[in-house]
Amino acid sequence: MRSLFSDAPRVTLTAIYWAFIFYLLLPLTLMMAMSFKDANFVAFPIGEWTLDWYAKVLQDKQFLEACLYSIMIAAATTLAATVLGVWIAMLIVAEGIKGQVIIFALACLPAVVPGMISAISLRIFISTIDMPTGTAAIILGHTVHAVPFVVVMALTRLRSMPGNLVDAARDLGADSFVAFLRVTLPYLGPALFGGMIFCVLLSIDDFVRTFFLGGYRPTLPMLIFAKVQGGMSPEINAMATLVLVVTAAVGLYAEYLTRRARTR
């Protein structure tokens, strides 16, 4: 009787977990299924299945251009955010520097400010420095958004680094810059790579900053937003499914890499 009673929470929690997984995956599965519907309106049941929408999307110049544009912005954002994030993290862990708590708080600020307000403040900011809306403004906005995450990831790794590694390099004649390049950076490697992929996903995902900072050239989320507002069609489902599959694959790969690095 007692074992039955003490097992009840375990069984309930297992059921809740799987119910939650079902809840998480159901809308996305429905969305993917709808992309195969052989009709030009979105409605269940699906009835006839087709691959035509994919053929259409893959020939859609607007979609392909938006993909390229998003990837370009994500690459530039990732590069800038990684350099800045590591630089800030190095400053925070450096010895003999005062006010590390304040620097850390400032570095995390953009992660706490709600997305909409961040977008508005950046829109105002670029106008005060006479920067036009467009690609450069989007990259700037995305970088501000991504830097805190790189800082936190780099800091976690830096704090677990044995201090004598750099000392050894210094004793062997490397100056601090060389020691950073040859010892600290390789040590950061795997954590940094996970952080970089996170930046890519963050940038490709971002809608609100792009909406306020962008020009007329649509990024992927802007294109999907415009299409959804313009009217439903399984074409959007095919587009979204393609994006989802690619980003999930990238995310899984990053997860695999960081896990492999951790177990080594």
Binding site: L28, M31, F207, P221, A240, L244, T247, L252
Partner: peptide, 10 residues
Amino acid sequence: WAGELIRTFS
């Protein structure tokens, strides 16, 4: 990994 817009759309 689906992103804000795709999750909303789904």
